[in-house]
Amino acid sequence: MLTALTYLLFAYSAVLTVWALVLTIRNTAAGKGLLGATGGLLVLLIVQLVVSIALWGRADGTDPLLFFGYLFTALLLVPLAGFWAFAELSRWGPAVVAAAAVTVFVMIERMDQIWL
């Protein structure tokens, strides 16, 4: 994977996790800021998808089903969590975003291991 983008995704999902947790602890529902940031993570994952397809020739021996399985699961998870947080009017909306963001963090790490 593109190293810079991988680190950006790590940092972004980590910051989003912490931010969402802070909102949960402070008993605040998800506002425009957090929902926008969740959308930003989706945009970064789409960039990752485009970059992965573009660089696929370099990743000789990487299992496409495994790699894109992770990527598409992440691409499905983030908007679902975003809509969930949008619909949820309590502190538990940001909690769902935190759970999704930390999941994406782990999935990026797995994708980085899978990419040869």
């Binding site: 679902l80 969930w84 949820e88 502190r91 538990w92 769902v96 759970a99």
Partner: peptide, 11 residues
Amino acid sequence: GPGRALTAVYG
């Protein structure tokens, strides 16, 4: 809320 969050994690 907590029940919905739990449901989301299960999802």
